[in-house]
């Protein structure tokens, strides 16, 4: 489920909206995978925010895979995360596989540390799936071939299966613990100009990722007039969302709100608003 992302949005809601709710969304189904679709830079910031929030607010161990080195934590994150400490940052393990082969190997090897490490990771983040699946190293010549579709399926299935295995381990340590989640980002077709190639990749990814979180830039005049650098709309969709909404008991609104707004001020500060 998208509970980690929802927690991120709730935690960083604008001050006028108040920071009342700091609880993770109620019962999550066994598979918890979310695909963030949108601009690379913003997706990366949202993923980092998710990793840092999970580590600092929930004390979770996080594995963060990305092709691009993270030199330092963005300033806006340092300002916004109140309980950020070196201790909680140590809970995040950054890993930099260069190719999809290396990424598969590293994800496949996550179970090996199960016997040596005290607690398994509860969140697996993959930044920039398109770089692994559609990049020059992915083996294709521009297009997205059946072999690459199979590769996208292999990676997604491995991520989901690994999360399912780690969930079992987490539950063995503490029966009430929340499941291990996967959050990955994928740049949308609009930005790349290779609509057909990325669409067939998305088709495959949607089979395995139960929730899609779409980031859509608001280019309207109002946004510019408000003196904000950027305004993004965030939509949560997918089968996972429908399930979460149908399992709610007597609450008036669904467990997971389907739409949020992300406001980025000129100094890079990110704030979320429930729509």
């Amino acid at each position: 489920m998208a509970d980690i992302l929802t927690l991120v949005f709730k935690t960083f809601t604008s001050q006028t909206g108040g920071r009342k709710e700091l609880t993770v969304a109620p019962p999550s189904p066994p598979t918890c995978s979310t695909l963030v679709v949108g601009d690379t830079g913003i997706s990366r910031s949202v993923l980092l925010l998710a990793a840092v929030t999970a580590a600092s607010e929930l004390g979770m161990r996080v594995v963060f895979f990305t092709q691009t080195q993270i030199q330092s934590l963005p300033l806006c994150l340092q300002k916004r995360v109140p309980s950020l400490s070196p201790e909680s940052l140590k809970k995040i393990k950054f890993s930099y596989p260069r190719t999809v082969g290396e990424l598969l190997q590293q994800v496949a090897g996550l179970h090996e540390s199960a016997n040596t490490s005290p607690t398994p990771p509860s969140l697996i983040v993959v930044d920039g799936l398109e770089g692994y699946l559609c990049g020059p190293g992915a083996g294709g010549l521009g297009g997205f071939h059946p072999g690459e579709q199979s590769c996208a399926a292999h990676l997604s299935a491995l991520l989901c299966d690994t999360a399912a295995f780690l969930t079992q381990l987490l539950r063995r340590c503490s029966p009430s613990s929340a499941p291990c989640r996967v959050i990955a980002s994928f740049r949308s077709a609009v930005d790349t100009g290779e609509a057909s190639a990325t669409d067939s990749a998305l088709d495959v990814l949607d089979r395995y990722f139960r929730v899609r979180c779409t980031l859509d830039r608001d280019g309207s005049y109002e946004a510019a007039a408000a003196g904000l650098q950027e305004v993004w709309h965030i939509y949560l969709s997918g089968t996972g969302i429908a399930e979460a909404s149908s399992t709610k008991d007597c609450e008036d609104r669904p467990a997971v709100a389907p739409e949020w707004k992300l406001l980025i001020s000129p100094d890079g500060l990110m704030e979320f608003e429930l729509v």
Binding site: P146, S150, A153, A157, C160, F165, Y208
Partner: peptide, 19 residues
């Protein structure tokens, strides 16, 4: 093949199921 979700590296899975 994985225990918790559907994936097989065979050509039929890539063609009939995925494509």
């Amino acid at each position: 093949c994985f225990v918790s979700c559907h994936y097989c590296p065979c050509p039929a899975f890539a063609y009939t199921v995925l494509r």
